[in-house]
Design a protein around this nucleic acid. Structure first.
Lengths: 111, 111
DNA sequence: ATAATAGTTAACCAACTCGTTAACCTTATA
DNA sequence: TATAAGGTTAACGAGTTGGTTAACTATTAT
């Protein structure tokens, strides 16, 4: 599994994912590429509105774009998506009750 | 694997992860719980500074807290962390070159 | 009872976000 | 060539973020 390391990239990726419409756009793009105007239509946004979201997604490298004439196609960047999955999955937390763990820890800290 | 559904929660979780210091705090907490002041010290922040970050993490339910006297202990909320992993991993993208996929798609769209 | 420790809250500020409308550029189409 | 279609850019405004210092509350130690 590929993995992200650059903090600036990670900031950008998670900021991009922190907005419902951008997650919805990615969800769409997971099935098929789309044009800028179709995305605007489908997500109830003005063209400048969708444009900004796409810019955020592109700067996070979560999507790639390709111009064909005056039409601009957008697709999911699977490589980056897998990198995000890699980052998230590197933290394996064991099963167990947090409250209990914290109680024990506090108890162990008492003088 | 548990999974997140509420868009507001997802917004909060990814916004929380979109800041380097908060990711560093979570990284710390993955090993052991800590107090507010120790976290402030370790991450070079004033007490109000760390406090705000912890509030963001707590609202995203990524950490839990427990007061013991005047000391406030913070721990990773493993359940929520696993839920985030679940959300991320539900999108399985097959291996393959995006550029190529997009090229093919554009070609298939041409009149 | 006084003082120190641990944390919280308030107030402030510069920078950024997310939406808008209006103006503009580029590439078809009539 | 003019017009339309598809995108981009600029400018603005309400709201949020991330840090600070100063003031305050609550708990422990002397």
């Amino acid at each position: 599994m590929p993995k992200l390391h650059d903090p600036v990239q990670l900031d950008a990726v998670f900021a991009a994912l922190s907005h419902q419409k951008r997650r919805a756009i990615l969800h769409d793009l997971a099935f098929r590429p789309a044009t800028v105007s179709v995305l605007a239509e489908d997500h109830g946004l003005s063209l400048p509105g969708i444009y900004k979201h796409l810019k955020v997604l592109e700067e996070a490298q979560l999507v790639i774009r390709k111009k064909a004439g005056r039409t601009n196609f957008v697709a999911l960047n699977k490589r980056q998506w897998r990198a995000v999955q890699g980052w998230i999955m590197q933290y394996h937390t064991e099963w167990g009750n947090d409250e209990e763990t914290l109680e024990n820890y506090i108890a162990s800290m008492r003088p």
